[in-house]
C-alpha cells in the first residue's frame, strides 16, 4: 500500500469505520449513564432546578477566584488547549469543507496562516499540560494509563496536521494520510477514555446545578 492508497483508505472506509465507532460508542456511553436514572427529589424546593442546572452549566466554565489564584498558569493552559483545539478543528477552511460535504453546512473560517500559528500554540499547550501533570503531586497520584492514552490521541491529530501543512519530516501525502488516521484513532478511542467528558461535562454540571437550584444554594 503506497501513500496514495493509504490516504484513500483513510478518507473512505477508514473514516466511515471510525465515525461509526465514535458515534455508536458515545451513544452507548450516554445510554449507560442515562439508563441508570435518577429518583425524583421529594424535598420542598426553594428554587428552580432547571434554572440552577443552566446556571451551573455555564458558570463552571470559569473557575472561582480562589481556585484560579492557586494555579493560574495551569488553568490558563487548560483554556488555551481547549480553545486552540476547537479553532483548528472547526475554523480551518479544509476542515469546514469536509463538514460541508458530510453535513451540508458551512461557516466562515480563519486564514490558514493564523490556523497554523494556533496549531503550534495548541501543540505547545498540550505538551505544557503533560509537564503540569508530571509536576503536580496530586495529578501524578490520580493519573491512569487511560490518561496518557487520551493525551496522546489528542496530540497526534494536531501534530500531524501541523506537520502536513508545513511539509515537515514526511512527504505531504503520507503525512496527510497519517493525519487522517490519527483523527480516526482519536475518534475510536474517545468513547472509551476520559475524553467522554466532551459530553458528560454537561450532564455532570446539569445534575449538580439542578440540585443546587432546587435547594437555593450556590453552585
Amino acid at each position: 500500500m503506497d501513500a496514495n492508497e493509504l490516504l484513500a483508505w483513510a478518507r473512505g472506509p477508514g473514516f466511515d469505520i471510525a465515525l461509526t465507532i465514535f458515534v455508536a460508542g458515545m451513544l452507548l456511553r450516554l445510554f449507560e449513564v442515562m439508563a441508570l436514572g435518577k429518583k425524583p427529589d421529594l424535598s420542598a424546593a426553594r428554587g428552580s432546578g432547571a434554572q440552577g442546572g443552566m446556571r451551573t452549566l455555564v458558570a463552571r466554565t470559569l473557575p472561582r477566584k480562589s481556585v484560579f489564584d492557586k494555579e493560574p498558569l495551569r488553568i490558563i493552559n487548560g483554556y488555551v488547549l481547549h480553545i486552540g483545539f476547537f479553532i483548528v478543528l472547526f475554523l480551518y477552511e479544509p476542515h469546514i469543507a469536509l463538514f460541508d460535504r458530510a453535513l451540508g453546512i458551512s461557516w466562515p473560517g480563519l486564514p490558514s496562516g493564523l490556523i497554523d500559528a494556533i496549531g503550534a500554540i495548541t501543540i505547545l499547550s498540550l505538551i505544557a499540560a503533560l509537564v503540569f501533570r508530571l509536576n503536580n503531586t496530586v495529578m501524578r497520584f490520580l493519573t491512569t494509563k487511560g490518561d496518557w492514552l487520551a493525551w496522546a490521541v489528542t496530540l497526534l491529530p494536531v501534530l500531524t496536521g501541523y506537520m502536513a501543512y508545513n511539509h515537515l519530516l514526511l512527504p505531504y501525502t503520507l503525512m496527510l494520510a497519517l493525519h487522517l488516521l490519527s483523527v480516526e484513532l482519536l475518534m475510536v478511542v474517545a468513547p472509551f477514555t476520559k475524553l467522554t467528558h466532551m459530553f458528560s461535562f454537561a450532564t455532570a454540571r446539569w445534575y449538580q446545578g439542578y440540585q443546587a437550584g432546587r435547594r437555593g444554594v450556590e453552585s
Partner: peptide, 26 residues
C-alpha cells in the same frame, strides 16, 4: 446507590486534581 448523576460524574472526571486544594484534609 449509583444513578445517572454518579455515572455522569465518573465519566466526566479528567483527573485534574483541583478538588484536592478545596479539601482541608488535603
Amino acid at each position: 446507590e449509583i444513578d445517572a448523576p454518579v455515572a455522569s460524574f465518573f465519566s466526566a472526571c479528567v483527573h485534574c486534581g483541583m478538588c484536592a486544594d478545596a479539601c482541608l484534609f488535603y
